[in-house]
């Protein structure tokens, strides 16, 4: 267990380094945004006279050297100050904090679901290799992998919400129903089904394909021959020997793709009017609210880092060689 703790500590250091770089990148992007930030801010605030702009410049230290501004910026970010949205007349952090739980709920559920179902389907296809069920899973995965998620979302909602009326088409909960306790949880769960399935479907396809390919490859390795030479049954060989080893590359890829999944929430939340950070990003794009957009960039990056630590721990639990390999 000491190994896992060490690994975890190592990952935290690495995460911190990545985070600092992202903050710097964020700062550079703020300055790369078109126009004088003070002018933009003034514009956003609705007053663009010279004096106000100069006052803003002084207030935000924009007349200082770039490095000093960077230091100030980093200091503020560390304290949780991500700037101020004049559009919404609120600090960016407050807006994000309010929206974060919905997005975490959506992406984390979709992530775990896609990983679990993807591995399951891929393993099933690998065991059935060459039969019709393998072909069916392969074709479905190929289709799901080629479909833009926002369109899948639209089509699913057209079918299950508009035509069949089984599930709510959008939103986080039934507005004005005033559910509490379990009823509320069930209500949210019903609202979650379509967005989670849509987001998970694409990555599930990816992991299913990967699991299948990985299992077929592992099956050819020497230790599987050893297992067969021991006279073990096919089920035990496939689960204990093949799948366990085949799952490692899938977890690695899942960690790498976590960023895409979190990014995909922008599209899903837009389609399903899910009141999270992704939906906020869409609104910020429409309103050209760069402060909020860059805040989202930072917060989603942190989310991805957390997802990565999660997958690393998962990997460390399965693979005893982890200390040596890294």
């Amino acid at each position: 267990m000491l190994g896992l703790a060490q690994l975890f500590a190592g990952r935290l250091v690495k995460a911190a380094a990545i985070l600092i770089t992202i903050v710097v990148l964020n700062f550079l992007l703020v300055h790369a945004a078109p126009g004088d930030p003070a002018m933009v801010m003034a514009g956003e605030a609705g007053a663009a006279d010279e004096q106000f702009v100069a006052q803003l410049r002084a207030q935000f230290g924009l007349d200082r050297p770039l490095t000093e501004q960077l230091a100030t910026y980093v200091g503020k970010v560390v304290q949780g100050d991500l700037g101020y949205s004049y559009r919404q007349q609120r600090p960016v952090w407050d807006i994000l904090w309010e929206r974060l739980p919905a997005t975490l709920l959506l992406t984390l559920t979709a992530f775990l679901l896609s990983l679990a179902l993807g591995v399951l389907l891929g393993a099933f296809a690998a065991v059935q290799v060459g039969r019709w069920s393998d072909s069916a899973i392969t074709v479905l995965a190929l289709l799901a992998y080629a479909t833009p998620i926002y369109w899948t979302g639209l089509m699913l909602s057209l079918l299950f919400a508009v035509e069949l009326g089984w599930l709510p088409a959008f939103g986080y909960e039934t507005i004005g129903a005033g559910y509490t306790g379990l009823d509320h949880a069930l209500d949210v769960a019903r609202h979650m089904v379509l967005p989670v399935v849509t987001l998970a479907l694409f990555y599930m396809a990816a992991y299913a394909r990967l699991t299948r390919a990985s299992m077929l490859e592992v099956r050819g390795q020497d230790f599987v021959k050893t297992a067969r030479a021991k006279g073990l049954g096919p089920l035990r060989i496939e689960t204990r020997h093949v799948l366990r080893n085949a799952i490692l590359p899938v977890i690695t890829v899942a960690g790498i793709q976590a960023g895409q999944l979190v990014g995909g929430s922008i599209l899903i939340e837009t389609v399903f009017a899910w009141p999270g950070i992704g939906r906020l990003a869409f609104e910020a794009v429409l309103q050209r609210d760069y402060q909020v957009l860059l805040g989202i960039f930072l917060v989603t990056s942190v989310m991805v880092i957390l997802f990565n630590i999660l997958t690393d721990l998962l990997y460390g639990l399965i693979d005893p060689r982890i200390q040596v390999a890294r």
């Binding site: 230790f223 021959k225 204990r240 366990r244 399965i318 693979d319 005893p320």
Partner: peptide
């Protein structure tokens, strides 16, 4: 029973 040539790869690394 059988033993193989490559001891480095003949055992399941995760068990």
């Amino acid at each position: 029973a059988m033993i193989f040539q490559e001891p480095m790869t003949a055992l399941n690394p995760l068990m």
